[in-house]
Computed example of a mutant assay.
Amino acid sequence: MDRKHVEEWLATYERLWRTPGTDALVTLFTEDASYQQGPYWTPVVGLPAVLAGTAAGRFARRLLT
């Protein structure tokens, strides 16, 4: 993996984060993915948990804006 690949992945992630729903996010994560939002957060593990966390994060963000 090189810098260009990482930059493309991040750009795609940001675009999909702003897209309603979570269906398209399955193209970025594997079934056994883990996602940690910060250095002291407990990671969520597994694609269903990652997608649920993404949906919850979007909901919380809408409440704060």
Rank of each mutant, 00 (worst) to 15 (best):
P48F: 06
L28M: 09
P48C: 01
R15S: 15
T42A: 13
G53S: 09
A60L: 15
L16C: 11
Q36G: 05
V45F: 06
T42F: 08
W41Q: 11
L51T: 13
W9S: 07
D2P: 01
F59V: 08
R61G: 12
Y13M: 13
W17K: 03
T22Y: 03
L25N: 00
T42S: 13
A56V: 03
F59C: 09
G57E: 06
V26L: 07
F29N: 09
V50Y: 06
G38Y: 07
V6H: 08
R62W: 09
T30D: 14
A49V: 02
W41T: 11
F29G: 01
K4F: 05
V26P: 03
T42G: 05
Q37N: 05
L47Y: 04
W9K: 08
D23M: 00
R58I: 04
L25M: 14
E8N: 14
Q37F: 00
A11R: 12
A60P: 00
T54H: 03
G57N: 09
P39T: 02
T27Q: 14
G21N: 11
Y40Q: 09
R18G: 06
A56K: 06
L10Q: 13
E31G: 02
E8S: 15
T27E: 15
F29E: 15
F59L: 09
S34F: 10
R15H: 11
D2Y: 04
E31C: 00
D32N: 10
T65F: 04
E7A: 14
D32K: 12
H5M: 06
Y40I: 01
P48A: 06
M1S: 07
Y40E: 15
P43G: 08
A33V: 13
F29P: 02
V50L: 01
G46Q: 11
T12H: 07
V6C: 03
K4R: 14
P48K: 11
L64H: 12
M1N: 11
V44C: 02
T42I: 06
S34E: 08
A33I: 09
P43S: 07
E8R: 12
R61P: 00
T65I: 10
Q36V: 07
H5R: 08
L10Y: 08
E31H: 00
G53L: 05
A24P: 05
L16S: 10
L28N: 05
Q37P: 03
R61S: 14
L10P: 02
P20A: 05
R58M: 03
D2S: 09
R62A: 12
W41M: 13
V44H: 11
T30Q: 08
T65R: 12
P39N: 01
G38A: 13
V45P: 00
T54G: 03
M1G: 11
R62S: 13
E8Y: 11
L28Q: 06
R62P: 00
T19C: 01
T65V: 13
R62Q: 14
A33Y: 03
T30S: 10
G53Y: 03
E31M: 07
P48L: 02
E14L: 10
G46P: 13
A49P: 09
Y35M: 12
L16N: 06
A11E: 12
A24K: 12
W17E: 04
L28I: 11
G57F: 03
T65S: 14
A49W: 02
W9Q: 02
R61N: 10
R62H: 08
E31V: 05
L63Q: 14
T22Q: 01
A56C: 02
V6I: 11
